[in-house]
């Protein structure tokens, strides 16, 4: 049973997991997006209204459409992971070790020459 020559399945590091999640979720979203968009929109029918000076075939339009959606989704999922990972670690409402809010007092308390009325 204790065959140490066979290594146990390792766990991915956090960075690797983040990258995997970002890529995979972006890919799935781009698939759904491409499917829905090109189900209702024929790129060939757009030729007359095309902004670009050249006509692209359906296959190229589908591929570029997918790649574009993949890129946009990747930006979204990548940024989401970045924002969560770099968020305030001790600032969450339920977080432990959160810094107490800065102490506030009346300015005159220790400085009798200050008049709070001057700061309105």
């Amino acid at each position: 049973m204790n065959d140490t020559s066979q290594s146990l399945p390792g766990r991915w590091s956090r960075g690797k997991r983040d990258l995997g999640i970002a890529l995979w979720i972006a890919f799935l979203s781009a698939c759904v997006g491409t499917f829905v968009i090109f189900a209702v929109l024929d790129p060939d029918a757009l030729n007359d209204a095309w902004v670009l000076p050249w006509e692209m075939g359906r296959r190229l339009a589908y591929s570029l459409g997918f790649l574009f959606l993949f890129l946009v989704s990747l930006i979204a999922s990548g940024l989401t992971i970045f924002m969560i990972r770099t968020g305030p670690k001790s600032g969450h409402a339920s977080g432990t070790g959160r810094r107490p809010p800065p102490e506030i007092r009346s300015p005159e308390e220790e400085n009798p020459d200050l008049d709070i009325g001057d700061f309105k």
């Binding site: 809010p101 800065p102 102490e103 506030i104 007092r105 300015p107 220790e110 400085n111 200050l114 700061f119």
Partner: peptide, 13 residues
Amino acid sequence: INCTLCVQVCPTG
């Protein structure tokens, strides 16, 4: 002078 007015005016607290 530790009047804490800088804290009181801060919009992010």
